[in-house]
Nucleic acid binder design. Structure first.
Lengths: 340, 340
DNA sequence: CTGTTAGCGCCTTCAA
DNA sequence: TTGAAGGCGCTAACAG
């Protein structure tokens, strides 16, 4: 009686809100046989399997993942991704890497943007945890990782992307920021430059600190000075980079070469150099589209953000499926110079 | 007895796998009071509310969303987003728009990338539906929308972004591709150009067809010809656009101006023009970063992809929360010319 | 204001 | 190979 009500008697309409009971009733079998068939359990006769599949097809039935994961305890294939700025091509490529890995493993990606706001980051992780997702890849908004550590301790693994763990032992994927900046600087030194300026990033973030260290280390190794007047690391945007470079170039003793700490700073420097028709040499961290269209040569330290994402997803996958406790791992993404 | 087992007696350890029963036991109350407190139901005494909140805090308890949505039938704030290429800044900005709207409404975003593969698009929608999410914003990979219509018919609303519905009545957000191309072309005509080439997109996609129509309509209105030799719409990438433009410019009677159908085509055209040091005028659809750094003036038809995303999310939100059936709606995103 | 009962859709366990 | 019973964590509906 009830069953015929639920299936709507002969009214066969595709509807995603039908249940296994409906499918079972339509096929004249028990819900368990439907469940087994849909899980690919071999302990179902070919005949019944056929009946089930047809009923599923006719009714447009889709198994309810919420109920599934509730009963089985496990999450069913959702990984979280928290980035600081999705509109930045760097992070969207990283997101693509995570998505590609996830897709290959039958997982979906739940994405959140923090706009570098730590509270929002905490909020997102809280929410992710309440959805019992498998784990999350996080590009941290700050070097405060306490909530990330806590989240992992409560059973939801966290992998850091682009920053090393602080006071915690989380898996992480890092870029060789030091090596890249070191190589960029060495190229200028090898070309004979002695008076080199550096347009850096805020050094309270690991990336900024490492790139600065790469620069100063290379300079020191060549016996060159890095006076404070030639190093800046409070540059928020392209316009500021342009202005700072302008001031450098307008000095009595301007630098003959400039290292951009990221592509925004490099672009700002390029504008200032071009504006003055100076022949200052320019190199910079991060590749960018159309770098080859500029009207002078440029060397950039490039790496693949998509690889960063897929590596992070891979570490996360390993940790989610590990059987025994495992120590934190770190993967380093190589950086190579590209000459335009 | 069982309860004291579950709470681990006096062993109070933060653990996201604790349940309302555990919280209730710790607070000496019933699970219902915990549930009511956590939902913000006013029918809880201040005293008990306090007890509950403290127990939650001590136990590190987090409500299980899967169980919640299973019981209440409704999904709890997940919207899907399907794009064709997340690495394209255009779509990542669109994604940001969706994310921002979702965040303001307490929702999360489940993202999927199709790489313009229709099967993958179908697969993603199947999966989304089985997770009973609220609905999805889709940038369609083709003009086959049957599965999208079916998905909406089965109770999961779909909003199209960047393409109008085909043989279906879905909500959609469109860009004024016709108007933008029309204006771009008119600017060249007003500047005295009579021999204008168009580097278009595949016309089986709505955007490609509309931009071509904008071009030909403007030309026709000025009494100008648009011979097939001056119109191309099989250009897959920048290199091809460069080659095609090169062939145009090397003719006996080359165009004096070119309209790029998107930023890739515009960039390819720019390279060919620059290579030949030609003074061909250039305009194009889509803004792009560093367009101002090119060594000649350029006009682009620009619009805000983030707005496209947030508008789509808004339409979806309305449809998810509508009470009575509502006709399909379309929002048009304005396009404006920017001169570099 | 608080608690009891029942069941969302599925899957684990056990019995046939 | 199949089915019946029971419960995952939560909350609607109904008592008190």
């Amino acid at each position: 009686m009830e069953i015929s009500d639920r299936t709507g008697a002969s009214i066969v309409q595709a509807n995603s809100s039908s249940t296994m009971r409906d499918v079972a009733a339509y096929a004249g079998l028990s819900p368990m046989t439907v469940s087994r068939t849909l899980r690919g359990d071999p302990a179902v006769s070919a005949e019944n399997r056929q009946k089930v599949l047809e009923a599923v097809s006719v009714l447009g039935y889709r198994r309810n993942e919420a109920a599934r994961s509730l009963r089985s305890g496990r999450s069913h294939g959702i990984v979280g991704l928290v980035v600081t700025n999705l509109a930045n091509p760097f992070y969207s490529q990283l997101a693509l890497g995570v998505e590609q890995f996830a897709a290959q493993h039958g997982q979906q990606v739940l994405i959140g943007n923090t706009a570098e706001n730590l509270d929002r980051e905490r909020e997102l992780l809280e929410d992710f945890a309440s959805r019992r997702i498998d784990g999350a890849v996080v590009v941290p908004a700050s070097d405060d990782h306490r909530h990330l550590r806590a989240t992992q301790a409560q059973g939801m693994p966290v992998v850091l992307a682009g920053a090393p763990p602080r006071r915690s032992s989380l898996d992480s994927v890092l870029v060789d920021d030091f090596g890249g900046a070191h190589e960029l600087t060495n190229q200028l030194i090898d070309a004979g430059h002695r008076h080199i300026a550096f347009l850096g990033l805020p050094t309270h973030l690991w990336t900024g600190a490492e790139r600065l260290r790469g620069f100063t280390t290379a300079m020191a190794a060549a016996g060159l000075d890095t006076p404070g007047a030639m190093v800046d690391h409070h540059i928020p945007d392209i316009a500021t980079a342009q202005q700072v470079t302008g001031e450098l170039l307008d000095r009595k003793n301007p630098p003959t070469a400039i290292v951009g700490g990221n592509n925004r700073n490099t672009m700002g420097a390029y504008r200032a150099i071009r504006q003055r028709a100076a022949d200052t040499a320019l190199v910079g961290f991060d590749d960018f589209e159309f770098a080859d269209l500029l009207d002078r040569s440029l060397t950039v330290a490039a790496y693949d953000p998509t690889e960063l994402g897929s590596s992070a997803a891979s570490l996360l996958h390993d940790r989610v499926h590990m059987t025994a406790p495992r120590r934190a791992r770190t993967i380093s993404i190589p950086v190579q110079l590209k000459h335009y």
